[in-house]
Simulated assay, not measured.
Amino acid sequence: MRLRLAAIMLALVASAGIATAQHHGHHDHGSHGGALPADARERVAFPPELAEHTLANMRDHLLALQQINEALAAGDMDQAGRIAEQRLGMTSLRLHGAAEVARFMPRGMQEAGTAMHKAASRFAIEAQNAGVTGEIKPALTALAETMAACVGCHAGYRLR
């Protein structure tokens, strides 16, 4: 069961990430003849202290995703949901100072962030449901959407 769960998670995350990156024009065509393509992401200017704060938040988001995966691997759906809501979901917005940071973001970056936070909250709910019903696919779909929003944002934007 755990191997099946891991395989499903990887397939969902990989397909969502590839689709999002391709949607933003970042296709992997294999070898680039030894040279990396120019970074075409939109550069977003944040005040230095907010840039550091935002980068620290993104590292924490990545750590939260790792911890969610660990909880899923252990079969602890409630813990996975708690981590998602507290660190990534809509509940986390105040903790991360989202209102202050959002005013420096282009609209697309704001929309990607909102999509990520909403998908994480959906995952938290679906993870709780899965703990009761055993039906994990809706939770994994919401987790894939959460990660796809991250991938899409990082594919399209970078802080300067």
Rank of each mutant, 00 (worst) to 15 (best):
M1H: 11
R4I: 07
R4S: 14
L5H: 12
A7L: 08
M9T: 13
A11F: 10
V13L: 08
V13H: 01
G17E: 01
G17Q: 01
I18L: 12
A21Y: 00
H24Q: 03
H24A: 12
G25N: 09
H26F: 09
H27V: 13
D28T: 06
G30M: 02
G30K: 10
S31C: 14
A35M: 07
A35Y: 08
A38Y: 05
D39W: 09
R43E: 14
V44P: 13
F46R: 00
F46N: 03
P47N: 01
P48H: 04
L50Q: 10
E52A: 15
T54D: 02
T54F: 13
L55C: 02
L55R: 12
A56I: 12
N57W: 02
N57Q: 09
N57D: 14
M58P: 07
D60R: 14
D60M: 13
H61A: 11
H61D: 14
L62T: 09
A64C: 04
A64K: 03
A64Q: 03
Q66P: 04
I68W: 02
N69D: 07
E70R: 15
A71G: 13
A71Q: 08
A71Y: 05
L72N: 03
A73V: 13
M77N: 06
M77C: 06
D78H: 10
Q79F: 06
R82W: 01
A84C: 00
A84Q: 05
Q86M: 07
Q86G: 08
R87T: 13
R87W: 06
L88D: 01
G89F: 11
G89M: 14
M90F: 11
M90G: 08
L93N: 12
A99L: 11
A99K: 13
E100M: 11
E100P: 00
P106S: 12
R107H: 08
G108N: 07
Q110D: 07
G113V: 06
A115R: 11
K118D: 14
A119R: 00
A120H: 10
S121N: 04
R122A: 01
E126F: 07
A127E: 06
A127G: 11
A127W: 03
Q128S: 10
Q128V: 09
N129M: 13
A130H: 04
G131P: 04
G131I: 02
V132G: 12
G134L: 07
G134V: 08
I136N: 09
K137W: 05
K137Q: 05
K137A: 10
L140S: 01
L143Y: 02
A144I: 02
A144F: 09
E145W: 00
T146F: 03
A148Q: 00
A149W: 02
G152H: 06
G152L: 14
G152C: 09
C153F: 08
C153N: 10
G156W: 00
L159M: 12
